[in-house]
C-alpha cells in the first residue's frame, strides 16, 4: 500500500483519539492544497534546511547529478532526479526526507493497532490521504482486519472514485469524512482539476445508505478565499447537505503550507493569502443554518483579532 505516513494520537481526523494513515497520491489538484507532498503517487524527496549539516553526502551519492547547493540551500533538479532515493538513504541528518513508501497491509495493520488502548469508545483508525479511495481494495482489506479486531474505522475522502470502490469499503467503515468543495462543476474543475459529478453522485450514494449501513457521515468543506468561500457556493452546498449528514465542518483556510511548496520546488498561489476572519466564518455558518443545514460548524485557524 502506497502511504505518505502514519500519525499517532491524531485529534483532528474524526472523533476520539485516532491513528491516521495518510495515503500517497490524489486524483485532485486542489489549488489550495496544504499537503502538497501527498499529491503525487510516487515517492518524492524533500529537503529540510534547518536539519542540514552541509556535509554534501547527498551530492556525492546522487548518480543523476540532480543535487547542488545554491543560494537558497540544496537545489533539487526534479527533471533529472529519477527518484532512486539513494540520497535520502545516505543523508546523515535526515535533512533529505523521502515522502511516500510502499508498505504491506499486514505490516500497516500491526502498526495501526499499537495505540488501541488509547482509542476508548469513540476513537480508532482513520484512513486519509492523498486519496485513500484510490487504493480502495487495499483499504478495504485493511479496514476489514481492523473491524474484525473491534476497532473503530473512519475514511476521509474527496469522493472522486468509482461507486464500486465505496461498495468495497463501506461495509467495514463506521465514519465517512467526505469532502464537498464546490457545488458548481465547472468551477470545481477550474479549482481542483476535475468536475464534481462523480463526487456528487457518490455523496448521494453514501447519504442514501448511511442509515442502513449505520454510517456516521461528516461533510468537510475547506473554505478558501476566492475559491470555495462564495456565499452562493456555501448556500448551494448547504442545500445538498441539509438533512443528509451528521455534521458539516467548514474548515477555515490556513497558510501553513507555504514552506512545503517551497521545499517541493513548486509555487503556491495562496502563499500570501490572508487567513479568514472569525466573523466571515460565522457568516458562512449562518448561511448554512438559514437554509436548514443545522449541522454546520466551523473549525480551523482564523485571523487573530488584535
Amino acid at each position: 500500500m502506497r502511504i505518505l505516513n502514519i500519525q499517532r494520537m491524531s485529534t483532528e481526523d474524526g472523533p476520539g483519539l485516532r491513528t491516521t494513515l495518510f495515503a500517497k497520491g490524489c486524483p485532485l489538484r486542489c489549488a489550495w492544497c496544504h499537503n502538497p507532498e501527498s499529491m503525487a503517487p510516487f515517492p518524492e524527496i524533500e529537503w529540510l534546511g534547518e536539519r542540514c549539516i552541509g556535509c554534501r553526502t547527498c551530492i556525492k551519492v546522487c548518480p543523476a547529478g540532480a543535487l547542488a547547493f545554491g543560494s537558497e540551500g540544496l537545489a533539487i533538479d526534479r527533471s533529472t532526479c529519477d527518484r532512486c532515493l539513494l540520497c535520502t538513504g545516505a543523508c546523515p541528518a535526515r535533512a533529505l526526507e523521502q515522502r511516500g513508501e510502499e508498505r504491506a497491509v499486514s505490516d500497516l495493520f500491526g502498526e495501526l493497532i499499537k495505540d488501541r488502548a488509547y482509542f476508548g469508545e469513540d476513537g480508532g483508525i482513520t484512513l486519509s490521504g492523498g486519496e485513500i479511495m484510490a487504493l480502495a481494495e487495499e483499504a478495504a482489506e485493511l479496514l476489514r482486519m481492523l473491524k474484525e479486531h473491534g476497532i473503530g474505522t473512519a475514511v476521509d475522502t474527496c469522493g472522486y472514485c468509482r461507486q464500486e470502490d465505496f461498495e468495497h469499503v463501506l461495509p467495514w467503515t463506521d465514519i465517512v469524512l467526505y469532502d464537498l468543495k464546490i457545488a458548481d462543476s465547472d468551477r470545481h474543475r477550474r479549482w481542483t482539476g476535475v468536475g464534481n459529478s462523480r463526487i456528487l453522485a457518490n455523496f448521494e450514494y453514501i447519504a442514501d445508505r448511511r442509515k442502513a449501513l449505520g454510517l456516521t457521515l461528516w461533510i468537510r468543506t475547506p473554505v478558501i478565499p476566492g475559491a470555495t468561500d462564495r456565499e452562493d457556493n456555501i448556500r448551494a452546498l448547504a442545500r445538498l447537505i441539509a438533512g443528509r449528514a451528521d455534521r458539516w465542518e467548514l474548515l477555515a483556510f490556513n497558510n501553513l503550507g507555504r514552506d512545503k511548496y517551497k521545499r517541493l520546488g513548486r509555487t503556491w498561489p495562496f502563499a500570501e493569502t490572508p487567513l479568514m476572519t472569525k466573523e466571515r466564518m460565522e457568516t458562512l455558518v449562518g448561511i448554512a443554518h438559514d437554509v436548514g443545514c443545522t449541522c454546520a460548524q466551523f473549525t480551523g485557524m482564523t485571523a487573530l483579532e488584535s
Partner: peptide, 29 residues
Amino acid sequence: YRHLLVRVTGYNAYFTSIGRELQDEIIAR
C-alpha cells in the same frame, strides 16, 4: 524539537520545519 507537530485540521507539519514567520504566528496564537 524536530518532531513537534503542528496540526490544524487536515494540515500536518513539523513546527521546526515551517518558516520563522509562521512559527511566530503560531506562538502569537
